[in-house]
Amino acid sequence: MANVDSAHTRAMMEYNARAKSTALGYILWFFLGFLGAHRLYGGRVGTGILQILLHGLGWLTAPIVIGYLFLGLWGLWWLVDAFLIPGWIRDYNLDVARRVGA
């Protein structure tokens, strides 16, 4: 019985160490959203890098006006992400729980 409790405790400790926070996801979204930090944190590395590139391309091409289109697309994407963050974090944490057996 002690081994079962010990294994469960270890699994819970590992889960707590690896789980992500929705609150931190929103903090990253608000303050570092232009860098795609919330997507990187949520495990969406490819689209996080794409957000960085879209934002940078928007600012680089803003003097020739087309950049405002890129920035507008990025801004819309950033707003939609606000509704997606809880699902990403929940899915990530469920995957962690399955892996550690918590």
Rank of each mutant, 00 (worst) to 15 (best):
2 A>Y: 08
5 D>E: 10
5 D>R: 01
8 H>G: 10
8 H>P: 09
10 R>W: 02
10 R>P: 02
11 A>G: 01
11 A>D: 12
11 A>E: 15
12 M>P: 07
13 M>G: 05
13 M>P: 00
15 Y>W: 10
16 N>P: 12
16 N>K: 14
18 R>L: 15
18 R>Q: 15
20 K>H: 01
21 S>Y: 06
21 S>G: 03
21 S>H: 00
21 S>M: 01
25 G>E: 10
25 G>W: 01
26 Y>C: 06
27 I>P: 11
28 L>F: 12
29 W>Y: 08
29 W>N: 11
29 W>L: 14
30 F>K: 00
32 L>I: 15
32 L>T: 14
32 L>M: 11
32 L>D: 14
33 G>H: 15
34 F>L: 00
35 L>N: 06
35 L>I: 07
36 G>H: 00
38 H>S: 04
38 H>E: 10
38 H>G: 04
39 R>N: 06
44 R>K: 14
44 R>I: 13
45 V>H: 14
47 T>Q: 14
48 G>S: 02
51 Q>L: 10
52 I>C: 09
52 I>V: 01
53 L>W: 05
53 L>T: 01
53 L>E: 05
55 H>D: 10
56 G>F: 08
57 L>S: 02
57 L>Y: 04
58 G>L: 03
59 W>P: 00
59 W>Q: 06
59 W>F: 00
60 L>H: 07
61 T>S: 02
62 A>D: 07
66 I>M: 05
67 G>A: 13
69 L>I: 08
70 F>T: 01
70 F>H: 01
73 L>G: 05
74 W>S: 04
76 L>W: 15
78 W>T: 03
78 W>R: 03
80 V>Y: 12
80 V>H: 11
81 D>N: 12
82 A>N: 09
83 F>D: 06
83 F>Q: 08
84 L>E: 06
85 I>S: 05
85 I>R: 04
86 P>Q: 03
87 G>Y: 12
88 W>V: 00
89 I>N: 03
89 I>L: 09
90 R>E: 13
